[in-house]
Design a protein around this nucleic acid. Structure first.
Lengths: 106, 106
DNA sequence: ATGACTATTATGTAATACTATATAGTGGTA
DNA sequence: TACCACTATATAGTATTACATAATAGTCAT
């Protein structure tokens, strides 16, 4: 699917939060998971700007670990604020997507 | 629902296109319809920037008509390019929303 | 004539995904 | 050795878009 950039604004961060909530993970792996999900054009740079934002907003805990496959990885886990943020994200998503689907149907 | 601004980016234009596709309408009325739909915080300025964008991209036909309720209204109808654009919008929406719901479920 | 409602336009700002590039570690292979 | 592919993070700059705010203007009731 081409050119879904604008439509991803405001939801990509929530997707990243959701992926992190499934268990400790790091930027590069998150990118791959988003691609597997279908957002094939998402690049590392985009995900890193999001994870750095999550750090700044204190929504994640961080642990740096060595890797045998390359440079050290920065592993993220959701903290309590991150969990709460994720819940709010899904509430917003439910609201917005239901309204848009309502518009589409009628 | 509070603070859904970022989530509306990339979908609001599609919503406006859909509303116009239902029949000739103008900015102020579009704003009211979006509010009725549930996007209560959408303001006129936002809708006008969208309609002006639609004009620039030649997705709409325009007709100015006098009103007995105030200043003249600029009525919009979708042209062929606009119809096509709307179809593409819904395809993108189906794609993105299905992927996000998939992520939510699993 | 004042205010409420209708109606459009314009300027500036904030948020966010993307482009492009730099840096760096590991392993394979020519 | 030198090169390449893959893994991994970071960042500067850009484009897009919704919003805040304000200006302008027409109609109508009080």
């Amino acid at each position: 699917m081409e050119n879904i950039t604008e439509m991803l604004k405001g939801v990509l961060e929530g997707c990243v939060l959701e992926i992190i909530s499934r268990g400790e993970t790091y930027g590069y792996e998150i990118t791959q998971q988003l691609r597997e999900l279908g957002f094939t054009d998402v690049v590392e740079g985009t995900v890193y700007t999001i994870t750095i934002r999550l750090e700044k907003n204190n929504l994640v805990d961080i642990e740096k670990k060595p890797s045998t496959m390359g440079p050290p990885r920065k592993f993220y886990t959701l903290n309590e604020a991150g969990q709460k943020h994720l819940e709010v994200f899904w509430e917003k998503w439910e609201f917005v997507s239901s309204k848009i689907n309502e518009l589409k149907r009628k």
